[in-house]
Structure formats: C-alpha cells, structure tokens
Simulated assay, not measured.
Amino acid sequence: MQFIVNIDVQDINKAISFYEKGLGLQLIRRLFGDTVAEMGGGPAPIYLIEQPDTNTAVPGTYIQRHYPRHWTPVHLDVLVENIDLAVSQAVSAGAALEGEIKPFAWGKACDNERSVR
C-alpha cells in the first residue's frame, strides 16, 4: 500500500524551508506552477500545497483558512528518537512551542497534547 500526505500551507517557500530545516525532509520536486512541493525523507511523501488564507477552507461555505496557529485539514504526530533535539530544531526553524515537554509512561511529548507549530 502507498499513500501521501497533503498539507495546506500559506507560503510554499517558507513551508519548504521549515520542513527541510525543522524536520529534515528534502524537496523532491515542485509541481503545478510551483504551488505544490513534494517532500521526501519520511515514511510517505508529503505534498505541501499553497492555499492562500483568502480561499475557503470548505467548498460551498464561507469558512476561510486561518493560519496564525496551525490551521490545516491534516494532523500529524511526528515520532522522533530525541524530542528535545527535534523541538529545538523545529523552534530554530521558526516554530513556536505551545507547551512544555513532559514525560509520560510511553515517552515524552509536548504538554497537553499541544504541538510545535
């Protein structure tokens, strides 16, 4: 079985930079007039799709995208060997840490199931 992950982003160039620097992925190719970027290096290809926040989020409605936090129709949990290092890399690439890293019985995670955005 093969699958891909699609993530709407506000600015394709900033998103490519973040996923390269923050998560260690590599740009494979750009598509559709440079509004889509295929990223590799994980268990599945990730397609970053530029969608301005002026576009509606749901066809046929007036609901608009809102990117200031982490609006996206896709949710990803990123499993890493060293969460401290991973969070540090993501923050240095421009992410904001919304909660502290805390230990749980199954490992460490960001506080209250909040993420790095």
Rank of each mutant, 00 (worst) to 15 (best):
F32D: 06
R117W: 05
K14I: 12
E113I: 13
I101D: 03
A90S: 06
N13I: 09
A93S: 07
Q64H: 14
I101C: 04
G40L: 07
H66F: 15
P43E: 08
A105H: 13
A96I: 11
A57R: 03
V9E: 00
V78Y: 09
G33M: 05
P59K: 03
S88I: 15
G107P: 00
L23C: 07
D11H: 12
F18V: 08
A105S: 15
N112I: 11
G107S: 05
N13S: 13
L97V: 08
A109V: 15
L79C: 14
D8C: 06
V5Q: 00
P43A: 12
G60V: 08
N112D: 13
N6V: 13
A37N: 01
S115C: 14
G94K: 06
F18D: 05
R29K: 10
I101T: 04
N82D: 09
E113P: 00
R69E: 06
F104C: 15
L85F: 06
D34R: 08
I4V: 10
F3A: 14
I4H: 06
A105K: 10
D53N: 07
A105E: 11
V87K: 00
G33Y: 01
F18T: 10
A86P: 00
G41I: 09
G33I: 05
R69L: 14
P68S: 15
T72F: 03
G60M: 04
I49Q: 00
Q10F: 11
I49V: 10
G60Q: 08
N55W: 09
W71N: 05
R65V: 07
S115M: 07
G22M: 01
F32G: 05
D53P: 03
N6Y: 12
V80F: 05
F104D: 11
E20R: 01
D111I: 15
P43S: 12
F18H: 02
T72A: 11
M1P: 01
L48N: 01
Y19L: 07
I83M: 02
N112G: 14
N6G: 05
V87E: 01
L85K: 09
D8G: 02
A95W: 04
M39K: 03
L31S: 14
T35I: 06
A57I: 07
A93F: 06
V78M: 08
L97T: 08
N55V: 07
L27K: 02
